[in-house]
Amino acid sequence: MSNDLQSTIHDILVDDLEVDAESIATDVRLDTLELDSLAIVEFITRVKEEFNVDLADEESALKDKTFGELVELVDARLGSS
């Protein structure tokens, strides 16, 4: 997993979804970041715009993932595209 990828996803959460930067760590579950369903959809849209990777099929499962798992998921999708 690249630091650039992790940094970009971190920036999407902070800049676009107004998540507190201090609260984001590799092992933090997304559901603890107070992301509602609209924020999840916005996140999926931003990831698609930024990386050309579609996570729509993961929408319901994203809240249960940690930040690290989310980065790994995007990384895996990048590798398969």
Rank of each mutant, 00 (worst) to 15 (best):
residue 52 N to D: 15
residue 43 F to G: 00
residue 56 A to S: 08
residue 19 V to D: 01
residue 36 D to S: 00
residue 69 E to T: 04
residue 27 D to E: 13
residue 50 E to D: 12
residue 60 S to K: 15
residue 37 S to T: 15
residue 37 S to N: 14
residue 65 K to V: 00
residue 30 L to W: 03
residue 31 D to F: 13
residue 51 F to N: 10
residue 66 T to H: 10
residue 69 E to G: 07
residue 27 D to W: 06
residue 68 G to S: 12
residue 43 F to P: 01
residue 63 K to G: 05
residue 66 T to I: 06
residue 45 T to M: 09
residue 39 A to S: 11
residue 54 D to W: 10
residue 36 D to E: 09
residue 36 D to A: 09
residue 51 F to Y: 15
residue 38 L to M: 14
residue 62 L to V: 02
residue 25 A to M: 01
residue 62 L to Y: 09
residue 63 K to A: 12
residue 42 E to P: 01
residue 60 S to E: 12
residue 25 A to Q: 12
residue 32 T to Q: 14
residue 31 D to M: 11
residue 70 L to N: 04
residue 62 L to H: 06
residue 59 E to D: 06
residue 46 R to H: 11
residue 54 D to C: 02
residue 55 L to Q: 05
residue 36 D to M: 07
residue 68 G to R: 09
residue 53 V to D: 03
residue 61 A to F: 11
residue 30 L to C: 08
residue 67 F to Y: 12
residue 33 L to C: 06
residue 18 E to Q: 14
residue 48 K to F: 00
residue 53 V to P: 02
residue 17 L to C: 07
residue 30 L to K: 06
residue 32 T to R: 13
residue 42 E to R: 14
residue 33 L to T: 06
residue 40 I to L: 15
residue 39 A to C: 05
residue 36 D to T: 06
residue 24 I to Q: 04
residue 62 L to S: 08
residue 42 E to W: 06
residue 45 T to H: 11
residue 21 A to P: 11
residue 42 E to L: 07
residue 43 F to N: 01
residue 56 A to N: 10
residue 53 V to G: 04
residue 23 S to H: 14
residue 64 D to S: 15
residue 40 I to T: 10
residue 46 R to Q: 07
residue 46 R to D: 03
residue 18 E to G: 01
residue 62 L to I: 13
residue 48 K to Q: 12
residue 45 T to C: 00
residue 47 V to M: 08
residue 56 A to I: 00
residue 63 K to W: 03
residue 59 E to K: 15
residue 33 L to E: 00
residue 47 V to I: 15
residue 48 K to T: 00
residue 64 D to T: 08
residue 54 D to N: 07
residue 51 F to K: 11
residue 17 L to I: 04
residue 57 D to V: 11
residue 59 E to I: 04
residue 41 V to G: 03
residue 26 T to S: 13
residue 47 V to C: 09
residue 51 F to S: 07
residue 29 R to E: 12
residue 29 R to D: 07
residue 18 E to Y: 13
residue 61 A to P: 01
residue 59 E to L: 09
residue 54 D to V: 00
residue 36 D to V: 08
residue 25 A to P: 01
residue 57 D to A: 14
residue 59 E to H: 10
residue 55 L to N: 02
residue 56 A to H: 09
residue 57 D to W: 10
residue 20 D to E: 12
residue 46 R to E: 05
residue 35 L to Q: 02
residue 37 S to G: 10
residue 27 D to A: 12
residue 64 D to I: 00
residue 22 E to G: 14
residue 41 V to N: 05
residue 25 A to Y: 06
residue 41 V to M: 14
residue 70 L to V: 01
residue 37 S to E: 15
residue 52 N to L: 00
residue 53 V to Y: 06
